[in-house]
C-alpha cells in the first residue's frame, strides 16, 4: 500500500454548500499531497481562527471528495466548534493536516462490494464508492438517515454507476428502517461468496456492531471506520486510543480509522 506522508498546509475554503438543514459541504483548494488521500483517510481541520484560542483544538473530518487539488468535507452542526466553522465565509484560509490514517483496503479480488453508511458516516463511503465505480467495479451503497432532511446529495454517485439504496427511519425517503434493516433485507437469501465479498461500514458504533453481528458468520471481509475524540491526529497524544476486541490498544488516528470488524467487535 502506498502511504502518503501527511503535510500541514493552509487550505483555502472555496465554497460552503448547504445540503440539508444542518448538513454542509465545505470545499477546499489544497494541494496534490492532501488531495491524493485514499478513501477512508481523514484530515485535521483548524484551528478555527488562527488567533482564537476557543475552540482550541483541530477537528478530524473524513474526506468526502478529493480530486486534483480540491477536497471536500461533510460537516454537520453538532456543537460549538462546528457551528463556528460553518459561520466562516469563503474565501478563507484554514489549517489542514493530512492525509491521516490508513484508509479502506478493498481486496483486488472483491466482486461484491457493499458499503453501509449511517448518518455522516456516508462521507468516507461516498468517496470510496466513487473511486471504486471509477475503476468500473460494481458497488452497492446503503445510506441510512433518520429522515430525508439528513441526506447529502447522492445523484453524483448514481451518475457514476454506484447503486444507492436509501434507508430512512421515518420512511420519508427510500425504504423505511435503519441502514442495517435494509442491508439485512437486501442480503437475505443471497449467497455471496466468502472470498470475493467485501463490506465496509461507517456510522454510529451501535450500527457498526450490528453490521458485525449480521455478517460475522458469513466469512466475508468486513471493515469498519471508527471515530473518536483526538487532539493530534498523528499518533502522539494517545487521546484516541481504543481497546480492541482482543484487549490490545489501538490508536484510531494511526492504526485506524479503518479496522477489520472482527478486530473491534467480538
Amino acid at each position: 500500500m502506498v502511504v502518503t506522508s501527511p503535510v500541514h498546509i493552509e487550505a483555502e475554503l472555496l465554497a460552503r454548500r448547504r445540503h440539508a438543514d444542518h448538513l454542509f459541504e465545505l470545499e477546499f483548494r489544497v494541494n496534490r499531497a492532501v488531495a491524493g488521500a485514499r478513501p477512508g483517510q481523514f484530515v485535521m481541520l483548524g484551528p478555527i481562527g488562527e488567533l482564537a484560542l476557543d475552540p482550541f483544538l483541530c477537528r478530524p473530518f473524513s474526506i468526502y471528495r478529493a480530486d486534483g487539488e480540491k477536497l471536500s468535507l461533510l460537516v454537520a452542526v453538532v456543537g460549538r466548534g462546528t457551528r463556528l466553522l460553518l459561520e466562516i465565509e469563503p474565501p478563507a484560509r484554514l489549517g489542514m493536516l493530512g492525509p491521516l490514517g490508513n484508509g479502506f483496503r478493498v481486496p483486488a479480488a472483491a466482486r461484491e462490494i457493499v458499503l453501509v453508511a449511517g448518518g455522516l458516516g456516508v462521507a468516507p463511503l461516498a468517496f470510496l464508492a466513487e473511486r471504486l465505480a471509477r475503476q468500473g467495479r460494481s458497488v452497492l451503497l446503503v445510506v441510512g438517515v433518520r429522515s430525508a432532511a439528513g441526506l447529502p446529495p447522492l445523484r453524483w454517485l448514481v451518475e457514476r454507476g454506484v447503486q444507492v439504496e436509501v434507508a430512512s427511519e421515518d420512511g420519508s425517503r427510500g425504504r423505511r428502517g435503519t441502514a442495517i434493516d435494509v442491508l439485512g433485507r437486501l442480503l437475505a437469501g443471497r449467497q455471496l461468496p466468502a472470498d470475493s465479498t467485501y463490506l465496509a461500514g461507517c456510522g454510529p458504533r451501535a450500527m457498526l456492531q450490528a453490521l458485525h453481528r449480521l455478517t460475522k458468520q458469513r466469512g466475508w471481509q468486513v471493515e469498519v471506520s471508527l471515530e473518536n475524540r483526538m487532539a493530534c491526529g498523528t499518533g502522539a497524544c494517545l487521546g484516541c486510543t481504543l481497546q480492541l476486541a482482543g484487549g490490545e490498544n489501538a490508536r484510531v488516528c494511526r492504526e485506524g480509522p479503518v479496522f477489520a470488524a472482527g478486530e473491534v467487535f467480538l
Binding site: L53, F56, L57, R229, C237, L238, G239, T241
Partner: peptide, 23 residues
C-alpha cells in the same frame, strides 16, 4: 501501561483536559 478508559480528551476554553493515564 494500557492507560485510562475513553474518552481521554475533552476540549475546554483555551485548552484541553486529558486523562491518558500514561499509556
Amino acid at each position: 501501561r494500557p492507560g485510562n478508559p475513553a474518552p481521554r480528551i475533552a476540549e475546554t476554553p483555551a485548552g484541553l483536559l486529558n486523562s491518558i493515564g500514561l499509556e
